[in-house]
């Protein structure tokens, strides 16, 4: 009972914050600045910002109207440079999942190896330490030059940025499995494969999934920047194209959409994390 009411109250406060923010935003941009006297023929050639002193920043209502127009028609395709926001999102999510999937295929086995073998852990450590802090976008020119395909290059950038958190967390999770459990497994003469899958994996799973959750967050951050850089398709290209048109309304719309998708991806992995966690 008490929890429900807390949830309810939190919801009301959230709504209140949203309303106040929306109102403040609306008031801040609705006033029109000083207007100059202009020849009507000249005024026809100018934009509203210049003629009516309208703020260049759109109001919350403009954004809502824009969002509605995108929701009404998310999958239109009017040529290679003008596709609906739904198609752009599908391209971005596709790239993220591909790059992320590849990173998983590499990071999980390699992380296991590093976690189980102190020798490999020490040997690979300097490489990981140097590569980890590199901004994934710094790889972009190199990728473009060697892979010679911009779409695969952005998938590669996603791969490289989601690799490190998964790798490090897997290694850490595997190496910190409690010694008692391993000893019990040894006394029961469990084979190495069975030990890896029935003892180590479940024990390390919460840490591994945490790494995966960090990775998907980073991957979603990076794809937008990567697509802004190479263009073509994807939500990042959409933002760039609308910026090109100085359409702040569309830019705000896509910021909201990017946030929403990022949240969904994160929540999906949060569910996985809850499923694999265990009380000690």
């Amino acid at each position: 009972m008490r929890q429900t009411s807390l949830r309810l109250r939190a919801g009301i406060v959230s709504l209140g914050i949203l309303l106040i923010f929306g109102l403040a935003w609306h008031l801040a941009v609705s006033g029109s600045g000083p207007t100059q006297q202009m020849d009507p023929e000249y005024a026809k050639l100018m934009g509203q910002t210049a003629v009516q002193g309208k703020s260049a920043m759109p109001g919350p209502l403009d954004v809502l109207v824009k969002i509605w127009s995108h929701l009404k028609e998310p999958f239109y395709d009017r040529g290679p440079n003008d596709k609906g926001i739904g198609i752009q999102l599908a391209y971005s999510i596709g790239r993220v999942l591909l790059g992320y999937g590849l990173a998983m295929l590499v990071a999980l086995p390699l992380g296991f190896l590093i976690g189980m073998s102190p020798l490999m852990a020490r040997a690979l450590d300097p490489f990981i330490q140097i590569m980890k802090p590199v901004s994934p976008l710094a790889w972009m020119p190199l990728a473009l030059y060697t892979i010679k395909d911009s779409s695969i290059s952005s998938i590669f950038v996603i791969f490289i940025c989601s690799l490190w958190p998964m790798l490090i967390n897997t290694a850490f999770g595997v190496s910190s499995v409690r010694k008692e459990w391993l000893n019990v497994a040894r006394t029961l003469e469990v084979g190495p494969f069975r030990r890896a899958f029935t003892v180590i994996l479940p024990a390390a799973a919460p840490t591994i999934v945490t790494g995966m959750r960090i990775s998907i967050g980073i991957a979603w951050l990076v794809i937008v920047a990567a697509e802004m850089l190479v263009g073509g398709t994807g939500i990042g290209y959409f933002v760039w194209n609308e910026w090109n048109n100085l359409s702040i309304t569309n830019v705000i719309t896509s910021i909201l959409v990017i946030g929403l998708v990022g949240m969904i991806l994160d929540q999906a992995l949060a569910r996985v994390a809850r499923a694999v966690s265990f009380p000690e």
Binding site: P80, N81, P141, K148, S150, G231, W240
Partner: peptide, 20 residues
């Protein structure tokens, strides 16, 4: 012919050199 919008001159140079 598909005409593809591109983000900048360096990218257009790289994509042409790549044969994209």
């Amino acid at each position: 012919v598909e005409v593809i919008k591109t983000a900048g001159w360096a990218v257009i140079r790289d994509k042409t050199l790549n044969k994209e």
